[in-house]
Amino acid sequence: MEHMKLTFVNVGYGEAILLECPDPRFADGVFVAVIDGGSSEAEEFSDHFTGRLPLAEYLHNYGPGHIDLMVSTHIHEDHICGLLSAARDFVPGALWQTLPEEIASRMHPLDASLAQNDSQDKFLRALNDYQSLRSLLEQHGNPVLTLRAGNTFELCQGLTCQVLAPSPSKAVELESRCRDLFGETESDEFLKKLSALDSRMNNYSLILLLDYQGTRILLPGDTNRLGYEDVDPTYLKSDLFKVGHHGQKDGASEELMAAIRPRAVVCCASSDRRYNSAHPDMLRMIAERGAALYFSDCPQLPGLDLPPHHALTFTVGAAGVLSAQYIV
Score class of each variant (00 low, 15 high):
Glu57Asn: 02
Lys249Gly: 01
Phe295Asp: 00
Gln213Lys: 15
Pro109Ile: 11
Ile75Tyr: 07
Asp297Leu: 12
Asp118His: 11
Lys170Asp: 13
Gly29Ala: 10
Tyr13Ala: 12
Tyr58Arg: 11
Ala33Tyr: 02
Gly12Ile: 04
Asn117Lys: 04
His245Ala: 08
Asp47Glu: 12
Gly141Asp: 00
Thr234Asp: 14
Ala278Asp: 03
Pro233His: 09
Arg106Thr: 10
Ala311Gly: 02
Leu194Ala: 10
Ile207Val: 15
Gly183Thr: 07
Ser271Lys: 14
Ile80Trp: 07
Val316Ala: 05
Met4Val: 10
Ser113Trp: 09
Leu53Asp: 01
Pro308Ala: 03
Asp239Gly: 07
Thr315Trp: 06
Tyr62Asn: 14
Tyr13Met: 11
Leu155Glu: 06
His3Trp: 08
Gly303Trp: 05
Asp222Phe: 07
Gly12Met: 04
Ser296Gln: 06
Thr315Arg: 00
Val243Lys: 00
Ile17Phe: 03
Asp230Ser: 14
Leu194Trp: 05
Lys237Asn: 05
Pro22Ser: 11
Ser238Cys: 10
Gly150Lys: 12
Asn142Leu: 15
Ala264Met: 02
Tyr130Gly: 12
Val32His: 02
Gly247Ile: 07
Asn224Glu: 02
Val11Arg: 00
Asp36Gln: 04
Thr313Gly: 00
Leu137Tyr: 09
Leu194Val: 13
Cys268Phe: 03
Tyr212Ile: 12
Gly141Met: 05
Ser195Val: 03
Glu186Ala: 15
Arg88Trp: 05
Leu147Val: 04
Thr152Leu: 14
His245Arg: 15
Ala278Trp: 02
Gln116Asp: 14
Thr215Tyr: 04
Glu173Asn: 10
Ser277Pro: 03
Gln131Asp: 01
Val316Leu: 08
Gly158Cys: 07
Asp250Gln: 11
His79Met: 13
Ser46Pro: 08
Ala269Cys: 12
Val9Met: 02
Glu255Pro: 01
Lys237Trp: 05
Glu254Leu: 10
Ala149Lys: 15
Leu206Ile: 09
Ser40Gln: 03
Arg88Phe: 11
His108Ala: 15
Leu197Pro: 06
Asn224Phe: 10
